[in-house]
Every structure is written in C-alpha cells, then in structure tokens.
Amino acid sequence: MSTHPLLEEEGAGTPAAGSEPTRSAEANLSPPTKLSGPIPWVIAILIALVVIAAAGGLSLRNLAENARADLADAVTVQIIEADPNERDIQAEAASSALSAHPLVTSVRQVPQDELEELLKPWLGEGAASDNVPIPALIDVELSRRASAEELAALQSVLDGALEPLGGGARVDAQSQWLRPVYDALSALQYLALALIILVSMATAAAVWLASRSAFANHRETVEIIHLLGGTDAQVTRVFERPVIREAAFGAFIGLVIGLAAVWLLGRQFASLDSGMVGGGGLDLSDWLIIAAIPVAGVLLAVITGRITIGHALKSML
C-alpha cells in the first residue's frame, strides 16, 4: 500500500519549528482587496487635496521669495517735466547724483521707446507723440534693501541735484507700494501651510480608520490564523497586503487627481503671463515633495496597520 506523501519523511506531520511559507503561499491567505469600498476613494480625495494644497503652498513660497528678491534692492526715480530737453538734462543730473551715493550699485535710465512700449496699453498710439508728456524713469539698483530713512536720504540727494535746475524728482520704492501685496502673499502662504497640516491630519485619520476597519473586518480570520499556529509576522504580512493595496490605490488616484488640478491651475496662471504671478513655478525639489505625499500616505497605512494588528495580536495569547 502506498504511503501518504506526508509520511514519507520523518516527522513530516510535525512541521519544522519556525519554518515559514513562501510569500506566494501567504498571498493565498490574504483577504481580497475591496477597491470598490469607500475607503480608497476617501484616501484618494484627501491625498488629492494635500497635493493641491502643497503645490499651492510651494508655489506661493516661490512667488513670495522672488518678489522679495525683486523688491529688496530697487527703486525707481520719476522725473516729471513737460519739456523733453529739460527732462533729459534733469535725468542726467539725477543719474550722476545717484551714482555717487554709496548705497547705489547701478543706475539705468529707461529708454524712451521702452517707456512708450510700456505705456502703449494705457495711452494708445498717442503715447508716441509729444502731446502727452512722459516722465523720465530711472531704474536704480541698491546694494541692499533700503530703509525708510535711507530712501529719504536718496530723495534729498535728488532734491539737492535738481533744485538748482528748477526741477524735481520722486523716489518710488516699489517695496513700499508692493508691501501689502507681499504681506498678502505671506498670509496666503501660512494659510496654505495650515491647510496642508489640517488635510494631512484628516488623511492620516482616514488612513488610520481604514486600516483599523480593514482589520476589524478580518479580526476573526486573524484569530483563526493565529490559533492554527500562524506567527505574528505571518499574520501581519497576510493582513498588511489588503491595507497596502487599498492605500496605494487611493494614494495613486489622489496623486493623479491632484496633479491634474495643479496642472490646470498652472496653465491658467501661466496664461496670465504677468510679472506679478511669474516666478511661482515649481522646481524639482518641489515636485519631489509632492511625489512624496502619496508615498507617505501608504507608509502611514502600513505603520497603522502594523500597530493595529500588533495590538490585537498582543491581546491574544
């Protein structure tokens, strides 16, 4: 009579202590992944929100940084004088007076045609004619950001140079009139940061709940596998699988939705093509941060799953 295969080896009936099945054998034991349930989609929506908030926040940060750099060290000097000749003489005098100032690194008188080009949208073709007097503009770059007193000092240097000529000039510090914009940008940045933190917390909570509910659904199975001699590591691996799959599915969909939204918004802003909005683009490190969001979500799911299963197992003998 043939013997049963399990009896061909000595001690075959008592499985070797600590032997572990192959991963594929364990995969056979895993509960099916329910991608149709609400959980992966909740995770997807939250991950999408985090991605959008992060992209917005990073973009605002870049924008604010660029703006600050632009504003930090430049002023514009305006010379309003109807007579073009007078205007040129005054601009010359202003330029040389400013160049002598220690804070000034460069002075550039904006050429007339460039000015006309700039004003055309507002004044029409008439800007080119002499009927409408155009002030002379001098771009002045400073070695650092000027304080209010230093701006006042520059103004008096100008006054000293132009009063003998019977003219006058005004120092326009862009930082002064752009300050509210800059402050608004900072506020928006903090808002984005707060939003990211809140949505991240909600996502963490959702992942946590998902992992716990997945486990609660399978608690009976966990107990059975435990009682049939499954080690803690085996049980954990078996139940990690569906949690990882659900979280990964949700995170991937969330990333796709989030990126699509970011791309659409980016296109809208790009088509504005204004100096104000420019410089808000994302660079490689920003994209890496965004790509890390779904990965962090999945990691969180794994950690939560392990903690939950670990607790439950420890409560079993």
């Binding site: 399990l6 499985p15 070797a16 032997s19 572990e20 099945p21 192959t22 054998a25 364990e26 056979n28 034991l29 059975i224 596998i225 049939l228 001699g229 499954g230 085996q234």
Partner: peptide, 10 residues
C-alpha cells in the same frame, strides 16, 4: 491553511 502556515511544499 495549516500546511501552508507550516511552510509545506505546495
């Protein structure tokens, strides 16, 4: 199940 948990050859 018991065989697979014990790592028995498939």
């Amino acid at each position: 199940l018991p065989l697979r948990l014990a790592g028995t050859d498939e």
